[in-house]
């Protein structure tokens, strides 16, 4: 037991170790986002393709696949959130305030990471209750017949769409710093590679934002699929 606990505490108890956890779990979540988006975009191919994809997801490994993924993602999320909260608390304790504050060049998104992150967390909980646990029994009924239909109905509510769009924007703010940051923490950034990394992270963020936002916009404003 000790042999297992020792490396874990060694990682958790060090600033770089903890950041490493944030970066690695962040990487997993970033990759998940890409997969999730590709799946979601199937909605544009029609109800059949989307429902088939949903079915395939649920039937992978005799229904175990989706649970493995869910548990994996949950673990990543918990570590990501726990580590960042712990890091943020340490940061606050370490840094007294200036009477006259100034920022030299830090980006806005880098300075609101904890707030964008916590909003995303709230959104994720809502999102899971909404489309995965389906606390709304009416929506749950629809989902049984067609997940495609569930999405269309789900996004016909203006408030839901608004919250979704805000959350996606904050997610992209979070990603625009987080993805590039990941390279630095994992030790892959250099001055020479920095422009490429900036291009990758900004490009990725933009794709994620456009992709995820397009669906509720298409549905709510342009009545796609209705």
């Amino acid at each position: 037991m000790n042999a297992l606990l020792c490396p874990i505490t060694a990682v958790w108890n060090s600033s770089i170790g903890k950041k490493l956890l944030v970066a690695l779990t962040g990487l997993a979540l970033v990759l998940f986002l890409a997969g999730h988006l590709i799946g979601n975009l199937l909605i544009y191919l029609g109800a059949e393709a989307f429902d088939e994809y949903a079915k395939a997801l649920h039937e992978a490994l005799r229904g175990g696949g989706v649970w493995i993924a869910r548990i994996g993602l949950l673990v990543c999320l918990v570590i990501h959130v726990a580590a960042t909260i712990s890091l943020t608390r340490a940061n606050r304790a370490a840094s007294p305030k200036y009477q006259h504050e100034a920022v030299i060049q830090a980006t806005k998104s880098s300075r609101i990471m904890i707030w964008s992150g916590l909003t995303i967390l709230a959104f994720v909980i809502f999102h899971l209750l909404h489309f995965t646990v389906r606390v709304d029994s009416e929506l749950a009924e629809i989902a049984k017949a067609s997940p495609h239909k569930m999405v269309i109905v789900g996004f016909s509510n203006g408030l839901v769409v608004l919250f979704y769009l805000i959350a996606m924007t904050l997610l992209c703010s979070h990603l625009s710093h987080g993805v590039a940051s990941m390279f630095q923490t994992l030790g892959f950034r250099s001055r020479k590679a920095a422009p490429l990394i900036a291009f990758l992270s900004k490009g990725y963020t933009l794709v994620i934002w456009l992709g995820f936002c397009s669906i509720p916009i298409a549905i709510y404003f342009f009545h796609f699929g209705c």
Binding site: S15, K19, A90, S95, S110
Partner: peptide
């Protein structure tokens, strides 16, 4: 000391 958040200040 605090932790790096890669802001490069």
């Amino acid at each position: 000391f605090g932790n790096c958040t890669n802001q490069y200040e």
